[in-house]
Amino acid sequence: MKVASPRQRLLRNTWFYVAAFLTTAFVATPILFALFGGFKDNQQLRDNALGLPNPWNTENYTDVLAASTFWRQLANSVGIALATTFIVVMAAAMVAFVFARYAFRGREVLFMLFATGMMFPFAVAVLPLFVILRTMGMLNSPLGVILPQAAFGLPLTIIILRSFFRAIPAEVEEAAVIDGAGPWRFFTTIMLPMARPALATVSVLALVNSWNSFLLPLVVLQESQWWTLPIGATRFSGQFSTDTAKVLAFVMLAMLPALIFYAFAERHLISGLTAGSTKG
């Protein structure tokens, strides 16, 4: 095997850092534009859209934070996201455990049935889902958002957790059985603690997907008291369409909780996605 020369390694690393820098700039530019734009007034945005605010204007952010509607929408988003994540992770963990550790007739067919859910576009299901929720009296209710979001989040979560559960050696289960542990005890006291990296990964994915969900809450939550932040941002931008700086401030504040959460959870997300491939 030919060993790369120092010059080749330097060139390869240089291109790697250039690509990383360009990708970071591509992602960070709109975020920084919204952040600094919220500290400007509309005249500054017209005259110097890409520059720093001069002077810095905090009124846009304070106006948004002083509005009770923003905090209500934030609470709605947090509640729906947490409930969705809990249901998705708990239900998927139990299903994935059965698919991973038990052999039964039709197992692979059932697993493929769950997997095909990833190929089913959500937009196609909006109309029948709306009819079902209206029939069940779940419109204008957080449950009308939580339960469908959880259902659509199950396929990917089950696939990730099943891969992790299958990677755990059979000797661990045999030792638990010898110690008198039944299936439920083995699942709750051994499998779930060992699966923390994978559970953290699917929790992050479910939480972020729920937080960013727009179409389903828009269809289901017609009363303003139940609006989430994505809907609130759309309504706010329509209400203050001529005040671009204030709209940018609202959008930035709506993004901030998800950005902070993802910054802290990124390590768990990466480790969980790679854990299943490194065990065995």
Rank of each mutant, 00 (worst) to 15 (best):
S213N: 14
G106L: 07
L82S: 11
M136F: 11
T84G: 07
L35G: 04
T189K: 08
T188C: 12
L156Q: 11
L192S: 02
F250A: 01
A91S: 13
L10K: 13
R267K: 06
S271Q: 14
N42T: 06
Q73A: 05
F86R: 05
A195I: 01
I80K: 03
G272P: 03
A91Y: 10
R235C: 04
S77Q: 12
L35T: 12
A181R: 07
L10I: 07
G232N: 05
A92M: 04
R9L: 14
I31W: 08
R134I: 06
G79L: 13
Y262A: 14
Q222E: 10
R166M: 15
F99M: 09
A170Q: 12
R101L: 09
L192G: 08
E59L: 00
T188A: 09
P128V: 05
V124R: 03
L113D: 08
Q149L: 15
E108K: 13
Q239N: 09
F130H: 03
A181C: 04
A275W: 01
R9K: 13
K279M: 07
A81M: 10
D243W: 02
A92D: 05
V89C: 12
Y61C: 00
T84I: 06
K246V: 10
P193Q: 03
T24D: 05
K2T: 04
T29V: 15
P217V: 11
L269D: 08
P155Y: 02
R166I: 06
A275R: 10
Q43W: 10
T29A: 15
I31H: 08
V145G: 05
R267H: 06
W56G: 04
Q43E: 14
S203Q: 10
L248D: 01
I159Q: 01
A103E: 15
A25H: 07
T24Q: 09
V98A: 15
A91I: 10
S213Q: 15
T278N: 11
F16R: 15
G137P: 03
P155V: 09
F120V: 11
L110V: 06
A275L: 07
L154M: 03
R7F: 12
V202L: 09
G38Q: 07
F26R: 09
D243M: 02
L154W: 04
F21N: 07
N212P: 03
I260P: 04
I231A: 04
R166C: 05
I260A: 10
R196P: 05
S237N: 12
R105S: 11
F16K: 15
E174L: 05
G79D: 06
T116E: 05
A175G: 14
G106N: 13
